[in-house]
Amino acid sequence: MPPNAPRSRTALFVTCLNDTLFPGTGRAAVTLLRRLGVEVDFPAAQSCCGQMHFNTGYRRETARLARHFVDTFADYEEIVVPSASCAGMPAESYPLAAEAAGDPGLAREVAELAPRVVELTEYLTDRLGVEQVGAYFPHRVTYHPTCHSLRATGLGERPHRLLRAVAGIDYVELPAQEECCGFGGTFSVKNPAVSGAMNGDKARHVLETGASVLAAVDNSCLMNIGGRLTRDGHPVRTLHLVEILARTERDGPLPGLPVVEAVR
């Protein structure tokens, strides 16, 4: 095997936020994918997709990160991403970044690579064709469809279906779930007052469900809502969807969480 050849056809792009602050999400993705028979690789050269740069207006800087992304993942047939907003970057934003940088070569490589980059939930339901992933999670869970997953990726009912198929789960719908949590990346830093007001309403809706876990497919939004819940002293845990799907009967209940009677 040549030294640079990938060890498998599927790569995990864990995202910079998960790598540093939410490594449990990356570990869960590896665990779940392997359980489903996918040999997943982690190319260590990967870093950041450049979403924050792009969304703040820095397109040429994004192009540099796009170049790095393309070089890192060019040899993989599929690139799985546990974040809807980061998964959308290559298809939605890299072409514009390449244009701003005046780099048609990059634009061509991006066009070739982007269709192979897929958000994890969609990978499970559409590429692997599974909804029942053998998960066990005996806790009350609610789910926030993040804006990108809802409107740009168009995940629709997929995450809800995956959650309802989890053994032991008590899944409750989140009121006003389609409303933005107020994160918006740079928005929450530039407009903290408005962001805080939106976030507060979202946290209130989470509490109305009585759930002990709030799930989503973007840890950035969960960090936003979870940060509010923690500051206000509420013990609701935030977990990426895959961290629920990765757990099985052998793992038992998640320590520290109230266990619900089987409601299936």
């Binding site: 830093v189 962001s195 507060g200 923690t230 500051r231």
Partner: peptide, 10 residues
């Protein structure tokens, strides 16, 4: 700073 007005950090 504004971010932490309303949120705890992970």
């Amino acid at each position: 700073g504004g971010w932490t007005e309303n949120r705890a950090l992970p």
